[in-house]
Design a protein around this nucleic acid. Structure first.
Lengths: 181, 181
DNA sequence: GCATGCATGTAAGGAGTTACATGATTCA
DNA sequence: TGAATCATGTAACTCCTTACATGCATGC
């Protein structure tokens, strides 16, 4: 079967118990969003489609007068999740405006390139902070994979921040024009 | 001024001399595409818009009967490029299907998680190979920034591949269920 | 003569974000 | 009572990719 990218995040988020759209969204925001985001504009229409395809099942579960629909995987949905997890990953995409600016920095002063690197570094440091905050969540998960991924994210952002720091020094020490000579 | 993301790649690619759309596309494919891609479907319409906005200027430059239009930055275009380069970067996006699969791997066997990591590792190793092939291009550039970015890309993909290797060992050594205990 | 590369473009569609609209509940 | 949180959903829009269409030039 060939589902939309977002469909798999949803199936995955339902892997150990029912959840409503709102909870799926916040689970994503507190975990996968650093490498796989999803917005309400995708989630709700996708829940409907998955439901129609028989991969998930919704059950009304109002809290008082506030309505709420809880979705859970069907057998078919669990099968589809497993078969996707066993296929090799295809998508790896990076979109880094900082690197793009750095790439073109021959058109500006070395100080400007250094400022770009500084901004990049600060961004990655901030992500590290945020990930450390989330760590307790991941620790509480049913299996160890979310924690493994989270710790990977911390190391990854630290590596990136360190790279930025090194390059900042390089760029200020020997401006690019000299280095290329 | 507020231009589309693709607009800046184009302005940047014109930073040291005129180029036609086809050349911009192949320059992107041989350099920035690993962190900032662009397709013909974006490039040609954007060239028109930038031209209408007075940031670039097209000059017909047919090669025999094969038509060709060469674009170069106007003074305004060069100004806009510089002002963008001096603003801090905003976009950093990662979309990694492998990490997503790994995150949900509690639903499959440890061997499946290891297979995902192996595929990820192979991908990053292959990118390293490809980047090494491109290295001579970057070395030839007018300033040192493209080379700095390229070498960063090599280190980055090597780091990722190594991380995958480490995690592959971890996952096989102590399955996730135990680790979380 | 044919494949590959050079060169320009468009149409259709998929994917995703933002902003909006609506309304209940909870807690300070 | 008012802010934050829970909860569902849609409309408009941007961005981007893929596939197609066209045709000349070059080199084997």
């Amino acid at each position: 079967m060939d589902l939309s990218p977002t469909a798999y995040v949803i199936l995955g988020m339902l892997r150990d118990g029912p959840r409503c759209g709102y909870e799926i969204k916040s689970a994503v925001d507190n975990s996968t969003r650093f490498f796989w985001a999803a917005s309400y504009g995708q989630i709700y229409p996708e829940l409907r489609k998955l439901s129609e395809a028989g991969l998930i099942e919704g059950r009304p579960d109002a809290r008082g007068d506030r309505k709420r629909v809880e979705f859970k995987l069907t057998a078919a949905g669990r099968g589809e999740l497993g078969s996707w997890l066993r296929r090799p990953p295809e998508t790896f995409e990076l979109r880094d405006e900082g690197l793009l600016k750095l790439f073109f920095s021959g058109a500006v002063e070395p100080e400007d390139a250094a400022a770009t690197l500084r901004a990049m570094r600060e961004h990655h440091r901030a992500v590290v902070e945020r990930l450390r905050e989330i760590e307790p969540n991941a620790t509480a998960a049913g299996d160890g994979y979310p924690l493994l991924v989270l710790r990977g994210g911390i190391e990854y952002n630290e590596w990136l921040a360190d790279w930025c720091e090194r390059m900042e020094r390089d760029v200020l020490a020997e401006p690019a024009e000299e280095r290329s000579a």
